[in-house]
Nucleic acid binder design. Structure first.
Lengths: 334, 334
DNA sequence: AAACCTTGTGAAATCGGTTTCACGTTCACG
DNA sequence: CGTGAACGTGAAACCGATTTCACAAGGTTT
């Protein structure tokens, strides 16, 4: 029951009758070791239930097997299930590849904060960032050669490796669906337009109009901030302005629910008077009444893709940004 | 711009004109070092922007400064914002205390899996587990002396350190509130009754009845599983059985919404015919219509408390389990 | 048959801290 | 004053792996 003392190379070497160097070679897949010796080393390793000591390995090799997942807690971390879900996907894939997930929840804003130092100090082999407004820090880190993946699109002019949902396609599909079901005047309530994701959804909306040979009136675009309240407020404003709006694409589910509330408060019904589509297909979309039609994004897959891109970078394999498809989930609201 | 080579003890020692041992003493708060020398060491440290090398420190000292957060992905990780929120609280507090959060999303079920080995191998200084059904693994780890904290109550007969929401008090307050607003026949839809949390909420319900000098009929207890569907199904069943139920406490918000759906499908209204209370005060409670009265638990605080208990253990300070209060948030549904 | 590669191997240095140990110094006390 | 305790200090061992380097053995080229 007493936990036997940790096995070390020196014990293995002695048991197997070889040198520590050979043990290291075997365990790191150096092909030059004689077959029989390799086998006997592996036997001893097996018998002793040996596992490498992380710190020792890191110190000697310079590789930590740690990947940082950096989450800016300036954002609405505390209520949004998004990041937790992505992170679980990341963690699973990393673990399958013998990498560990180091979670850094912190204010990323400062380019010179403790996180910055930490990441530069070679304490991790790579870092996965969630979408952020300021990418100065990321850019600086990239210069040091630290492998980086961004979950969510970075700002336009960079060449970071990133994974993202197809926001454009989602916005396009949502708008198209509204048009196809007969809506004549489709409005949009955007999310934070400062973020790339927010902008891309709007672009998708525009594109759908363009394909009809039309251009959406400026007045049909309302600017929300992803909150329930903003959805409600903007919808009320839209309807007060143009009572003949018969469809609305809200850039997330919460705003969609807010919009529905505003519509019903005006005595109109969903979807008969105004059809509503949200984005995310979160739990609120599934449980709201009427059920909310929404653009589903596969958040776990997003995390997994991020991890895969990180691993590819560590292996010096070529990497391409990855855009994951969305799927329109049709419920009662549109 | 070239990242200057990492500073080391030997550089600091030379610069400050002392030995490496003294540098170590200064940096680890050994009080015996002469004041002036200490100062000069600190000056050099400052000037060089020195930071300790984690792996080296871990190797030499046997302490890793890493705390594992172990999440069982057998659970409904992927949609539940709960764990992500707790984890962010944990991470913040740990970071403030110079500890890092190592995230392990994995199947904890096996007592002999890779995680088990990992945790036993001294790779982390402590582990925080989320509530789990089987605590065999945790018990085994505890025997090795690894500091452990459980987020959520462990099974009854153990003496693990844990933090939890006051499930009993929450269930009690919810039931009491229904009674106080005039409900004569209050039902409950439980969550997974196998979990301690699930059971405690039910106990709170019972206690409220007891204080009225009554015992709730067996038929008023319906067993759900925290899903929207189970809430809807059980509520329908309850009403089919006993149409005079006028209040229901659902053990989470999702089931509460399901219950509301069932109630309205029957042609009844909330809260006039049946008042409904949920648990969690999650985003769905805030955005549903009618607004859902719910028992709020402070999830971030839960994580922070977990981290604090871990830190106390690492310092060998005495630790007591911590039960965090709940708060009834009253909206339209009850 | 001399000169030159391979290939497989172990001794030893190395990574960057921590900790033990032994050696002065200084100080208090008898 | 002599003596033991307390204090500061640096040399060196140590943590557990990786990696360099030297070398022996066997195989190829001229």
């Amino acid at each position: 029951m007493t936990p036997r003392p940790r096995a070390t190379y020196s014990m293995i070497a002695k048991e197997a009758g070889v040198s520590e160097a050979t043990v290291s070679r075997v365990l790191n897949g150096d092909s030059r070791v004689d077959g029989d010796r390799a086998k006997s080393v592996l036997d001893v390793v097996e018998r002793l239930g040996y596992r490498k000591h992380r710190a020792a390995t890191a110190l000697a090799s310079g590789r930590t097997n740690l990947i940082a997942v950096v989450i800016d807690n300036d954002l609405s971390i505390f209520s949004d299930p998004f990041w937790g879900t992505v992170t679980s996907g990341i963690s699973r894939v990393l673990m399958e590849n013998e990498l560990q997930t180091l979670l850094l929840v912190t204010s990323v804003s400062s380019i010179d904060g403790p996180v910055a130092h930490y990441l530069q100090a070679g304490e991790v082999d790579g870092a996965i960032f969630f979408q952020l407004h300021k990418d100065a820090l990321v850019r600086k880190l990239a210069k040091t050669g630290l492998p980086i993946v961004i979950a969510g699109s970075p700002h336009a002019a960079t060449d970071f490796v990133f994974v993202d949902t197809d926001n454009f396609g989602g916005g396009h599909a949502a708008t198209k669906h509204l048009v196809n079901r007969g809506c004549k005047k489709v409005a949009i309530i955007t999310g934070d337009i400062e973020t790339v994701a927010g902008h891309q959804r709007l672009d998708g909306y525009h594109q759908a109009y363009r394909e009809l040979g039309r251009v959406p009136a400026k007045a049909l675009t309302a600017y929300g901030d992803y909150s329930y309240e903003s959805g409600k407020r903007e919808m009320a404003r839209l309807l007060a302005d143009q009572s003949d709006i018969d469809g609305v694409f809200a850039c997330n589910d919460l705003m969609a629910l807010g919009a529905i509330a505003a519509i019903e408060e005006r005595g109109l019904t969903v979807p008969n008077d105004v059809a509503v589509i949200g984005f995310d297909d979160s739990v609120v979309a599934q449980t709201s009444r009427p059920g909310l039609t929404s653009v589903r994004q596969d958040i776990v897959a997003l995390g997994e893709a991020a991890a895969e891109l990180m691993i590819a970078q560590l292996r010096n394999e070529p990497v391409e940004p990855r855009i994951l498809p969305t799927q329109l989930v049709i419920r009662a609201s549109a």
